[in-house]
Design a protein around this nucleic acid. Structure first.
Lengths: 174, 174
DNA sequence: GTCGGTGATGTCATCACGTGACATCACTGG
DNA sequence: CCAGTGATGTCACGTGATGACATCACCGAC
């Protein structure tokens, strides 16, 4: 992370990182699948939290309500370290390669949410739409939170954003 | 495309592609930024169409209405060659690397739509939400269309999907 | 018709990413 | 104390990607 911030992601070689840690490049690749992954390790926790929180919602709830609960859970985890989040976000946004990885992680989370919803009896397309919408809210809210003051509450931002999504997608379709 | 289908994306080297075309790898990289890009060349047309169609919508329309128009325009272009779309989609979905690229192309389109909306006076967050929701509809609808019969109309699928999105995101938030 | 520029291509060298195979060494349970 | 296990190193290699320079065909100006 320090190296990525100092010289930029592309200017940092794996050999740099490894030797900074007193290791060899080969060892780096034993711990991280590729050069990008080092910034995304730990996202399994997030995915687990989403899946688990989704499983805890009563099956009678509307799909989007279930997604809202899952979003609350992710906000809980994601909203802990504002400083770190901001730094990480700035590195990721500066590099297309990293944005790609970020997007596919999001998509993976969305796919998991959709699967969770389908298991609860939600039709496939509705499940996909609800889950992807959840991912949209997560992205937009997180971005706003990261740019804002350090003491803001990510969960509150999420809830606001979700409300706005409902308003925006509803407007003109009554 | 043929090589990607025959042996898979990762098993196809740039040298393979180039020599198949009677050229060298160096020349390949003069035409395509990287090995993936060969599958995504031409997406500028799509982006242009979105931007242009968005510009044509009266400024009084609701943001999501404007997005709907843009979706119609993309469906027009995207829905022309079902066979090709299906083949391309199967290659992309089979490889994480290609899915990543696909996602960032989508995200770029969404960012353009959001910018277009902001220029029309839509607040930044609403613009982002509407545009990203549009991208969600596009993805979900396209997937469904690609898997379905060859004579289905992508525009119709899009409109259905958009309606479902409104229903799903609205349910439980009245 | 030739000259000179321009664009597309080839050749060569070079890096960085990523992986397989094998060796080494520290630690740990029996 | 020994055998096994896991983390690391070393080496070799294929592939993706880029810079520098050469070549060649084509085309307009004179």
């Amino acid at each position: 992370m320090r190296l990525y911030v100092e010289r930029g992601y592309e200017q940092t070689t794996v050999a740099d990182i490894a030797s900074e840690a007193g290791l060899t490049a080969r060892t780096f690749f034993r711990h991280f699948a590729d050069k990008r992954e080092v910034l995304f390790a730990g996202s399994e926790f997030l995915r687990d939290a989403v899946v688990k929180s989704l499983a805890g919602v009563p099956a009678t709830a509307e799909p989007m309500q279930a997604v809202a609960v899952a979003l609350d859970a992710t906000a809980e985890l994601l909203g802990r370290d504002h400083r770190h989040s901001r730094l990480r976000q700035s590195v990721i946004m500066a590099t297309a390669e990293l944005r790609e990885r970020e997007l596919i992680k999001m998509a993976t989370m969305a796919a998991l949410m959709a699967e969770g919803l389908r298991e609860r009896g939600v039709p496939a397309r509705d499940a996909a739409l609800a889950a992807e919408s959840g991912a949209v809210v997560l992205r937009v809210a997180f971005e706003q939170w990261v740019e804002g003051p350090a003491d803001a509450d990510l969960r509150a931002v999420m809830r606001d954003t979700l409300a706005r999504l409902t308003a925006v997608t509803g407007a003109g379709f009554s």
